[in-house]
Design a protein around this nucleic acid. Structure first.
Lengths: 351, 351
DNA sequence: ATCACCTGTGGGAGCGCTCCCACAGTACCT
DNA sequence: AGGTACTGTGGGAGCGCTCCCACAGGTGAT
């Protein structure tokens, strides 16, 4: 029979010990029930669960973390200023995937920006203090020391894209090479031959792979590479606009643009319009990410869809597995998995 | 003399005890130095600091939280789905302000979405477990039980806008009434007389206050209220478009629209354009928030600027004060402050 | 000289858990 | 009958801190 509102004699929150007393069992047994150990009889478990409910018992996380040497928290680290995080749908989609998957567990997510030097120092402190069980690292640049710091501290980590072909950490990525190929092949099939490419930040490996895909698709179709059709962007709208200006100046005869992101394409579109080029009649435009702005753009933008939410989910799965593995057998020299998810070209009216 | 890389005999991280041994002092003294107590001689402090540096000591937060009964973490709770969080600049600006202020301290920020029932249950658990020292609550609806839960658990909290005129929790808000007045007075000064209003979610107190400001500005200018010129929106773009359609249908003679948010205004603009109304020639448009989209809109949108980042900063200040106060003297019946920050009308070409 | 009262310091107790060893009880073999 | 091997349970030890009491040694009043 439940005693309503039975808590709070001493004013504080109930402890394991109090639950044990109430249920007429030992501390260890309550702990076993709380943690779902199978080595508890059904009768005892029921009694403990009743006591927990009556007292409104909630475990003290600090005590648990101290005793068990874990935190039940993971960090999503974004090595960018907050501004970019909010400006680019990539990050929010990623967060959505991770969040969805995480809500299945008891783990807690910390969102950490490491854009400035100061923030990075804080993060290093934070990691040194082992305040998280694992780290998800998104959008890592080639020369970022963070992954190595993580490895050195032996903190489980998964990154959203390898830093190079020789990545040692676990990573989940989409098929940047294949995605770029499909975009270019699509433009070729539409009869375009002077196809320009506005790249992403080239210190991001994925951006390089997109350039590779662009180049090889053209080469395989029998076109000699024209390096003047390639201009570096940085995934931002301003960068896209800037690059588009340069390209129009340098190659006025271009008839298509493959941009390394949708926001880049948005910047390019603006410049194309100002230059009086019609989309897609004069210049076909293809973006990357298939984010919300691709659908809302005028005209709607053909784009390479990456399953970003799925990537987030998968990253979390791999991280949790790594955390769980670590616990018993200290990191056996298993090869780290490098997962690659397929992309899909979504054709709209801009091409 | 510093011994380089002096850590890690036992493989684990150094503890207070080890630092104490190294510095030749007691545990308590090291604790005092770490926590900045003044009751330590300069010589001792220097010795301890040297030992800390040599060993690379970082305090164990879990142990500290357990012993001191605090967590050094606060939560920013957003009672909305993540989607809205990312869609509305209001939230990200708020986060920016809070983040900036927080980086001055040792506190850690948790971003918690409580849009779905499931998320809310998780949050309740979380709060019951006292895993944060305080809570910042943004965008609270009138009937939200969260503030009362917080009060019941005696967790310090600050909300971003009062739930009603009789709010009991500490709050920081901008002057919604005055902001709305200034928008309407501006439109009146431009010679507009048939001024419509697309409201925000009316279960948000601030949205009601904007309606009040709108009504009273008109009344004070000698216009009788025409309720048909008011249509409810919900702060979203779709809501704005929907409301605009209704208004155009009902009052084709309107010559100005005051929208309760910039995104609402964006939705309205779309509908106005489709209906062939020119902005500002036929219909003047004023938004609220002065967010990035106001500047980028075509034509640039006149908008009421709220100092959202400042609000975030101020909320954090008040919360930290409340947390600090609570510690020694258990909540003396101090009246809770209700801060109101001024708004400013930013005139652009849409009006 | 005695007392009061500072400052600076050491270290015991205890925060609420998890881990693990010990052990009672039962079951099934020899 | 004794051995072996389970299952379920209780409770000690200890995680790394903070809090606070005790106390040494100095300083200045009486």
């Amino acid at each position: 029979m439940a005693t309503h509102g039975a808590r709070g004699r001493s004013g504080g929150r109930p402890t394991l010990e109090e639950v044990a007393a109430r249920a007429g069992v030992g501390r260890g047994t309550v702990s076993r029930v709380i943690n779902g150990s199978p080595r508890v009889s059904d009768a005892t478990r029921a009694a403990v669960e009743a006591a927990v409910a009556e007292l409104g018992y909630v475990p003290n996380t600090a005590a648990r973390a101290l005793a068990a040497n874990r935190t039940d928290a993971i960090a999503l680290v974004v090595p960018e200023p907050e501004t970019r995080f909010f400006a680019e749908p990539y990050f929010s989609d990623m967060l959505k995937g991770v969040g969805a998957e995480l809500s299945e567990t008891e783990m807690q997510l910390l969102l950490i920006f490491a854009g400035s030097d100061r923030e990075r120092r804080r993060l290093a402190q934070y990691l040194a203090a082992h305040r998280v069980d694992g780290v998800l690292l998104v959008s890592v640049h080639a020369d970022d020391p963070l992954p190595d710091l993580l490895a050195q501290l032996e903190i489980p980590a998964v990154i959203s894209g390898p830093r190079s072909a020789a990545e040692t950490l676990t990573s989940v990525d989409s098929d940047n090479y294949g995605g770029a190929r499909s975009a270019v092949e699509h433009l070729l099939s539409r009869g375009r031959t002077r196809i320009a490419h506005i790249t992403g930040r080239l210190d991001v490996y994925g951006a390089q792979r997109r350039v590779d895909g662009y180049r090889e698709a053209l080469r395989d179709a029998g076109y000699e590479a024209d390096e003047r059709l390639i201009e570096a962007g940085d995934f931002t709208e301003e960068g896209g606009a800037q690059a588009m200006k340069v390209l129009l100046e340098r190659c006025p005869d271009l008839d298509a643009v493959f941009a390394a992101s949708d926001v880049t394409a948005a910047g390019a579109r603006q410049v194309l319009r100002e230059a009086g080029r019609r989309i897609p009649e004069d210049v076909a435009l293809v973006g990357y990410d298939d984010s919300a702005i691709a659908r809302h753009m005028d005209p709607p933008l053909t784009s390479v869809r990456q399953p970003i939410e799925d990537m987030g989910r998968r990253m979390l799965d791999l991280l949790l597995a790594e955390i769980a593995d670590r616990r018993p057998a200290v990191s056996r020299g298993l090869e780290r998995p490098q997962e690659v998810l397929a992309t899909e070209l979504v054709v709209r009216t801009s091409s």
